[in-house]
Amino acid sequence: MQKVEHGTAMMMSLRKQWRDIPPVLWVLLVMAIASYPLTEAFGRTGGFSLQFLANVVERSVTLAIVAVGQTFVILVGSIDLSVAFVISLAAVMASYFMQGNATMILIAVPAVLLMGAGIGWINGFLVTRGRVNPLIATLGMGLIIQGILSTSFQNFAGSVPQSYQIIAYGSLFGIPNSFFLLLAVAFGAAFVLRKTRFGAHIYAVGGNSEAARLSGINTDRIMRRAHLIAGLLAALAGLFLTSRLGSGAPWVGPDGIYDLESIAAVVIGGTILAGGRGGVFGTIIGVLIFGLIDSLFNQLGIDPYLKQVLRGLIIIFAVAAYSMRSKDEVA
């Protein structure tokens, strides 16, 4: 008797875990399976393989880092539209500081990360103290960065040393370094969100800011820290992108549409835009879906401009798949 009950309880918990798997994972699985015959038939480079999947992940690392930062601000009920410009700024600054000199890495990397965190903090300050709507505060901040950056730099600025490109192109035990970076960021963020007091406060503030404030949480400080993390991770993404590209230019961020795609990935990953519910791993899967779509388009040889059209529509309808069930008024 006891044993049977134990068995059913296990079945129950298994079924519960089964249901807890975010729906995006199923989408990803179906897409990966469906893409197999497609790429086999139309693929220009030998179709579907482990190499292809590794490629998908590698191309997604930059977006994944930004999107993890975006998850923090969206969870707390805010948003960051300046990330694409922070990426540009980080990329340009990194290659400008380094100028191909390997000894400068140790100075440039912390400086750029500090700058990203600072911009994030200012965003948070504008939202909390200035009471500026986060969309406007971060959009305005992005414009300011963009304006100053393109005034100062018209083209690729400097370059990074060979040793710096190991981050993007090197590998350890046959696994690309970028995988480790991705895993570190994802698990680090998941740890902060699930196991720390700060993480709990983020969910509390995003779920109900007023209730969180009344229960003694300094909501403004939580908001500023979440923005700081978004800025920091955007700068990290910029540093990684520079390692891939070898140099930074003012347009690398906006060209990658990192602002829109990071938000879309977060939403597709099951984090609700109003805040308070969601997590990092959903976001990572959302990013991988975008990466898979992108690589598929490349393999199928779709016109780059047409690809842009499809990308825009896919983002809208992917977000719609989640938002249309909501009964709230949306503007």
């Binding site: 829109l260 835009l273 983002i315 719609a320 938002s323 249309m324 949306v330």
Partner: peptide
């Protein structure tokens, strides 16, 4: 109808 926030749409 699809309730996509206008900024994303």
């Amino acid at each position: 109808l699809l309730k996509v926030p206008s900024i994303i749409a």
